[in-house]
Computed example of a mutant assay.
Amino acid sequence: MGTEISTARATGRPRDPRIEQAALAAVRALLAEGGYAAVTVSAVAARAGTTKAALYRRWPALPHLVHEAAFPSDLALDLHLGGSLEEDLAGIVRGARDALCSPVGAAALPALLAEITTWPDLHAAMLERFAGSFRAIDERLAVAVAAGEAHPDARADDLLRLVIGAVIAGVLLTPGQLDDAWADRLTDSLVRSLRP
């Protein structure tokens, strides 16, 4: 009789989560130190103590790695809705500003916006980061409409497009000027626009 050959397939080594964390931390540090231009696969691998091949096994391309580092899934707007409509809108505006205007986020955002034309899946991932926020704001607007505080046509996707668009325009045109006074002015404009 011949030797028995095992039919069990080797699964390989499990991925080491420390590599992911080290790579994400390296991207954040590089963005903060030198902006998007400083973030290369070689620089990330060297800073994280890993290889370029290990990075490419985890992320399809550099923009995907940058996106995950700059805008992690737990960064989606930290909404605390349930106050007055004006208070809730102020929280939405400040949450979007804080999520997109951190030093790391502001360094990554313009380049990532340019990259989405090349990587449609990256665009989908960026939208997915705010999916829960869209649902929560839609529910809040439904309450406001029922209470007569907001126009019946008010929609969360329109509201978030206005807010996120205003923040992105601010990052691109007037970085560093999206202070609390700016947030208050935008909130006032939104309150006026939502009135029935």
Rank of each mutant, 00 (worst) to 15 (best):
M1C: 02
G2P: 15
G2M: 11
G2A: 14
T3M: 14
E4V: 14
I5M: 14
I5G: 11
S6V: 04
T7C: 13
A8F: 15
R9Y: 07
T11C: 07
T11D: 09
G12Y: 15
R15P: 13
D16R: 09
R18K: 08
I19A: 05
E20P: 02
Q21N: 13
A23W: 02
L24A: 05
L24V: 13
A25V: 09
A26S: 13
A26K: 03
V27M: 01
L31V: 06
E33P: 00
E33Y: 00
G34N: 04
G35Q: 00
G35L: 03
Y36A: 14
A37T: 04
A38S: 13
A38C: 07
T40F: 12
V44E: 02
A45C: 07
A46N: 09
T51A: 11
T51H: 15
A53G: 10
Y56M: 06
R57Y: 13
R58I: 07
W59T: 01
P60M: 08
P60G: 11
A61Q: 03
L62Q: 10
P63C: 06
P63A: 05
H64W: 15
L65Y: 06
V66A: 09
H67L: 12
F71V: 03
S73F: 05
S73V: 06
D74Q: 06
A76L: 03
L79Q: 07
H80R: 11
L81H: 04
G82W: 12
S84T: 15
E87R: 08
L89Y: 10
L89K: 01
A90L: 15
G91P: 07
I92D: 01
A96I: 04
A99S: 10
L100G: 10
C101L: 13
V104F: 09
V104K: 01
A108L: 01
P110A: 05
P110N: 06
A111V: 04
A111S: 15
L112M: 12
L113T: 08
E115Q: 15
E115L: 10
I116P: 05
T117H: 11
T118L: 15
T118Y: 15
W119D: 08
W119I: 03
P120L: 14
H123Q: 14
H123M: 14
M126T: 03
L127A: 13
E128A: 11
R129V: 08
R129M: 08
R129W: 09
F130D: 12
A131G: 04
A131S: 08
R135F: 11
R135S: 09
R135M: 07
A136Q: 14
I137L: 14
I137Y: 08
R140L: 09
R140Q: 06
V143W: 03
V145T: 15
G148C: 09
A150D: 00
P152K: 05
P152E: 09
D153L: 10
D153A: 14
A154H: 02
L159P: 00
L162S: 10
V163D: 00
V163A: 02
I164T: 13
G165M: 10
V167H: 05
V167N: 02
A169I: 03
A169V: 08
A169Y: 12
V171N: 03
L172R: 03
L173N: 06
T174E: 14
P175E: 09
Q177F: 14
D180Q: 04
W182Q: 12
A183L: 05
A183R: 00
R185S: 10
L186M: 13
T187F: 12
S189A: 14
L190T: 00
L190G: 02
V191Q: 04
L194K: 00
P196R: 11
